[in-house]
Amino acid sequence: MDKGDPMGFEFPSDAWIKELSDHLNQSASYERSAKDWEGDFVFVVEPDEAYAETAYLFLGLHHGKSTGAARVESQDEREAAFVIRAPYSIWRKVIEGDLDPIRGMMTRRLKLSGNMVKIMRYPRAAQEIVACCAEVPTDWT
């Protein structure tokens, strides 16, 4: 299996989500597409054959900027309006651009908790986040 960039940031690590946060804050396209967005996320990485643990990544998002990011110990450690859960291999497909996140949610491969209507009003922002994910050099464990 391709391990990605060995000099990159291990997914799902604290360094990886912080790097994503930095990329978002440098992205004018993301800032414009999410200029009215309010709502933090927790991404839950569930174990599968490629990854044995459950990991929780917090990403603060407010008005087109990332307000902070960290790997946390549980879903409840940081309050978040939205929680997206998926197995590790599905997250890899999203991050590598092989699975559109909206399509992933429609087929229930990504499970979203939170205000669905709000998410549907910011499809371009979701696309820009994925674009920033692809820019993060990633080392797949």
Binding site: S29, R32, D100, I102, R121, Y122, P123, R124, Q127
Partner: peptide, 16 residues
């Protein structure tokens, strides 16, 4: 246009 759900499936994604 950018907040429209149909935008994400454009074969070429436009910038602003």
């Amino acid at each position: 246009a950018f907040s429209d759900t149909q935008m994400v499936t454009a074969p070429r994604s436009p910038s602003y």
